[in-house]
């Protein structure tokens, strides 16, 4: 039976990767937030599955936190934010999308080779997914690089955290509860600070295009 759980977790991992690529190829901020929400949902289900397979009850708590924080709270904040800032329109990427995805594929190959020696050591049912977790982190990073507006960058930052969280559950069956709570709090605080930043940036430059920050440099 655990054979099928393994496959199920693999499927979730693949969906996570798919969502990462979808985020990479998405121009609209609203869809980006929805994709982020879906990623959180996948994360929640996979954590719950790992908890069920291994019988570790604290993972249920992590799943619950994920659900509350990443599927409900953060998307809600983001939705409010873009309504307040009125930035719903399409965003142009710095590199065109197929090229970005090509770089993404290279990153996927790279991260799998990175994960190969580690996952050979691990004996968990989820070992094959470590590569995907690393890939998700790198892809989120790539998304942050290729967007020039502030809100997608924040979403990229949050997606990166999703990847890290997935790596933690897949490689080691989760971190101790204290660490997890700490990270959740960090993300929340980070979100708030960045939200304040947005308003400051817009007040200063009348735009959320972070290319304007280049003007702050002293000549």
């Amino acid at each position: 039976m655990s054979h099928y759980y393994g496959q199920f977790i693999n499927l979730l991992a693949a969906i996570l990767l798919l969502l990462s690529f979808a985020m990479l190829g998405q121009r609209r901020i609203l869809s980006l937030i929805n994709l982020f929400m879906a990623q959180g949902a996948v994360l929640c289900v996979s954590t719950a599955t790992v908890a069920f397979v291994t019988g570790q009850s604290h993972l249920y708590w992590s799943a619950l936190i994920t659900l509350l924080l990443k599927v409900i709270l953060l998307p809600w904040i983001l939705h409010r934010l873009i309504r307040r800032l009125n930035v719903k329109w399409d965003i142009e990427t710095l590199i065109n999308i197929p090229t970005t995805m090509l770089i993404g594929i290279v990153l996927v190959i790279f991260s799998f080779n990175l994960a190969l020696p580690i996952s050979e050591l691990a004996g968990t049912v989820t070992r094959a997914t470590l590569g995907i977790a690393i890939a998700a982190v790198l892809l989120a990073f790539l998304m942050m690089i290729t967007r020039s507006k502030a809100v997608p960058q924040v979403i990229g930052f949050l997606a990166m955290e999703n990847g890290l969280f997935f790596a933690a559950t897949s490689a080691t069956y989760g971190m101790p509860m204290v660490v997890e709570l700490g990270i959740a709090l960090d993300v929340l605080v980070g979100m708030v600070i960045l939200g304040v930043f947005f308003f400051q940036i817009r007040e200063r430059f009348d735009s959320l295009d972070i290319r304007h920050l280049e003007q702050l440099k002293e000549d």
Binding site: I97, P98, G104, I105, V108, I109, I132
Partner: peptide
């Protein structure tokens, strides 16, 4: 994008 996804499908198969 479709092309890249199809390539990715192949990679995912080889990896997972």
């Amino acid at each position: 994008t479709a092309f890249m996804l199809a390539v990715l499908a192949m990679l995912v198969h080889l990896l997972l």
